[in-house]
Simulated assay, not measured.
Amino acid sequence: MPISWTAAFSTGDYPDEPPLLEELGINFGHMRDKAISVLNPLTPIDKHVFDESDLRGLCSFACCMVVFSGKIQFNFIYGVALLGWLSIYAILNLMSESGIDSARTASVLGYCFLPMVLLSSLSILLHLSGPVGFIMSIFSIFWCTYSASLMFVTVLSMSDQRLLVAYPVGLLYSAFALLVVMAK
């Protein structure tokens, strides 16, 4: 049955048209699986969980830092993120035999920001410049580093080099923890 041009102005559905979220490439099931694998890194991780890449973790961190704290810091956040992403991408490709693509590197680093998002959310309510902020920042850095290094060594199958991967990743997350603590 042919569809007329007036069908564009009606509310009728086209046959065999995919849902809007599927058409845009938004899959809440994958986002949930990625978030759970970051927030609970003690469970076994599927090697293909980060096949689809996005930057939702980094964007939520930037929103918590900027929108809720009232300080405009997009240039610092994205500048440090860009430099860290390029550095981690180069280091991982030099260390592994198979290599990793840049989008997957950014996705893993972005999703592993979720503990840092929790820290930045707490910085809205609490003043984190004292010993409590120091302890919470160290805990958040270790959590992010543990999750990211586990994801990278799982994806790249290089479990013997986990500490070598964790060191630069930990430095990157330390820079973001400093941004959170020094924001006020």
Rank of each mutant, 00 (worst) to 15 (best):
residue 75 N to G: 00
residue 59 C to E: 06
residue 52 E to N: 05
residue 65 M to C: 12
residue 73 Q to D: 10
residue 98 S to E: 07
residue 91 I to V: 14
residue 99 G to I: 14
residue 66 V to I: 12
residue 49 V to E: 11
residue 71 K to S: 11
residue 57 G to A: 03
residue 95 M to I: 12
residue 84 G to L: 00
residue 92 L to Q: 05
residue 84 G to F: 00
residue 75 N to M: 08
residue 85 W to Y: 07
residue 67 V to A: 15
residue 97 E to N: 12
residue 98 S to M: 06
residue 89 Y to L: 13
residue 96 S to M: 06
residue 79 G to W: 01
residue 59 C to P: 00
residue 62 A to Q: 06
residue 62 A to C: 11
residue 71 K to D: 10
residue 53 S to W: 08
residue 75 N to K: 04
residue 83 L to D: 11
residue 80 V to S: 01
residue 60 S to Q: 02
residue 51 D to M: 04
residue 68 F to M: 09
residue 96 S to G: 13
residue 55 L to S: 03
residue 83 L to K: 01
residue 81 A to K: 13
residue 58 L to N: 00
residue 61 F to M: 05
residue 72 I to W: 05
residue 93 N to S: 12
residue 90 A to E: 12
residue 74 F to S: 13
residue 77 I to K: 03
residue 96 S to W: 03
residue 63 C to E: 13
residue 73 Q to P: 01
residue 82 L to C: 13
residue 66 V to H: 10
residue 53 S to T: 11
residue 73 Q to V: 09
residue 84 G to N: 04
residue 72 I to T: 12
residue 77 I to Q: 03
residue 89 Y to A: 14
residue 98 S to C: 07
residue 91 I to L: 08
residue 69 S to Q: 11
residue 54 D to A: 11
residue 50 F to V: 06
residue 97 E to W: 07
residue 59 C to T: 11
residue 63 C to H: 05
residue 88 I to P: 00
residue 76 F to D: 15
residue 64 C to F: 09
residue 69 S to C: 02
residue 97 E to C: 10
residue 98 S to Y: 04
residue 87 S to L: 09
residue 57 G to L: 05
residue 53 S to K: 00
residue 82 L to R: 08
residue 66 V to K: 04
residue 57 G to S: 05
residue 54 D to Y: 01
residue 64 C to D: 06
residue 49 V to T: 15
residue 86 L to E: 13
residue 99 G to M: 07
residue 51 D to E: 14
residue 98 S to Q: 07
residue 60 S to D: 00
residue 83 L to Y: 02
residue 74 F to I: 06
